[in-house]
């Protein structure tokens, strides 16, 4: 099987999610036989390292911030055809998400988004697992075409070093942009929520935006990102970009700490795949406790500062 991994390197930085994509491709190649090509969009700076995570070859297309999804999909399509790729893997983020549907048609391929497993083979077709019903269930999906495009759900595999660096080969591939990228307003220094390893989230129990200090302190102690429930974003206590849940962002960190969130089914849909959930709520009947690993029944304005202090003490700060 020839596997092609699309890596968005427009910021000239190889991220952990990129390592994860290549390592995932390596696991598939190891299980079913095959090779792994990484197709890097951007200068290719630092992309040698992808060899360590399992790439046999690394190719880079010249840097251009103005690539749009239409241009990227045409480039990936041309390259995949050039290399005779059977399986194309893209990230499950704003760069990879738009590509899957387009590539499915352009490559005459089957497609699955947000896959979670190293696929099994059934009747010579790949079978992928993915989350459905917004985290309430999983489905096993058989791809019926010979060619397949998938996006890998972030934080599904911990990348491991399995090889050594490889040379980055510059390639020239036609790009057919259709949308003009005018600019990017950057929010610096924040890890995107879907990639976050630890998250502290606040609900209506926080009572008001002026109280967020206790949450921010806890997040800082844990080196965590911050999130919120939908009503909190709707009334403007926190930005929409922090809203997690069925109609917000779906997250799967190692640790999700919920302060004053009741645990409505729509909220749980977005957070239930977190590895460990800690719930702090003064109501012992709050439904969130049923989905939690650890819970503290108490007033968050007392418990959260205590937890911050205990963590800082533990970390020796």
């Amino acid at each position: 099987m020839k596997i092609l991994v699309y890596i968005d390197n427009r910021k000239n930085k190889i991220k952990k999610t990129d390592q994860e994509l290549v390592y995932y491709a390596h696991l598939i190649a190891q299980k079913h036989g095959g090779s792994v090509d990484a197709f890097v969009l951007g200068s290719g700076e630092g992309a040698e390292v992808l060899g360590k995570y399992g790439a046999d070859n690394v190719y880079a297309v010249a840097h251009d911030e103005t690539f749009d999804a239409n241009g990227i999909s045409s480039a990936v399509k041309n390259f995949a055809e050039d290399k005779g790729a059977d399986l194309v893997i893209v990230p499950f983020n704003s760069s990879g998400k738009p590509l899957v549907g387009m590539l499915s048609y352009m490559l005459d391929a089957s497609s699955v988004t947000g896959v979670l497993n190293v696929p099994e083979v059934e009747e010579s077709k790949l079978v992928f697992k993915k989350g459905v019903f917004s985290g309430k269930a999983f489905a096993y999906i058989k791809t019926l075409k010979d060619k397949v495009v998938v996006s890998l759900m972030t934080n599904s595999f911990s990348p491991e070093e399995v090889g050594s660096e490889v040379n980055v080969e510059a390639v020239n591939i036609p790009v057919d942009n259709k949308v003009k990228v005018v600019g990017i307003d950057k929010v610096e220094g924040k890890v995107p929520l879907p990639e976050a390893e630890r998250i502290v989230s606040g609900g209506r129990g926080m009572k008001g935006p002026e109280n967020w200090g206790v949450l921010l302190d806890l997040a800082k102690a844990l080196d965590a990102e911050t999130a919120c429930s939908r009503p909190v974003a709707d009334v403007g206590w926190r930005p929409h970009s922090e809203h997690v849940g069925q109609t917000g962002i779906v997250v799967r960190p190692n640790l999700y700490v919920a302060l004053g969130i009741s645990g409505a089914i729509q909220h749980l849909a977005g957070v239930s795949s977190s590895k460990v959930i800690v719930v702090i709520n003064k109501d012992p009947e709050a439904p969130f406790f049923k989905a939690a690993d650890y819970g503290v029944v108490g007033d968050l304005f007392e418990v959260a500062p205590k937890l911050t202090e205990a963590i800082n003490k533990f970390k020796g700060k």
Binding site: S111, V127, K136, K142, L144, F289, Y294, G295
Partner: peptide, 26 residues
């Protein structure tokens, strides 16, 4: 159709929450 759903699975139920006393956050 280019894919076929073979089967579904429900997430494993959590083994149950461990409650910690608010006076013993350590």
């Amino acid at each position: 159709d280019r894919v076929e759903i073979l089967k579904y699975e429900l997430p494993k139920a959590k083994s149950g929450v461990k409650l910690v006393d608010p006076d013993n956050i350590d």
